[in-house]
């Protein structure tokens, strides 16, 4: 069944406490190569049958209006994936 994947990230200018905590822990566990971490969210919206343009448009709308908080988050990707 195909599904629509929506990815939401904290806005670049906004503090990301989750990413910050992970970034500061990584070196202690021996992972030295990463200078920053940002943590976002991935949503998988399943569709019965084919993903129509309308379904994709609805997913985009849902992503902007409900799955993300436009004050602090950006929708960075809405795409179709085969499950």
């Amino acid at each position: 069944m195909p599904r629509i994947v929506v990815e939401v990230m904290p806005k670049p200018e906004i503090l990301d406490p989750q990413g910050k905590a992970i970034a500061s822990a990584l070196p202690h566990l021996g992972f030295q190569d990463f200078s920053a971490v940002r943590q976002g969210k991935r949503f998988e919206l399943s569709v019965d049958g084919e993903v129509t343009d309308e379904a994709l448009a609805q997913a985009r709308k849902a992503a902007e209006e409900m799955l993300s908080n436009p004050v602090i988050e950006d929708v960075v990707d809405v795409r179709v994936e085969d499950a």
Partner: peptide, 14 residues
């Protein structure tokens, strides 16, 4: 300037 945040986000752990 590059974009400035519209709001502040708290980090209770810090």
């Amino acid at each position: 300037p590059s974009k400035r945040p519209a709001v502040q986000v708290g980090d209770p752990f810090s």
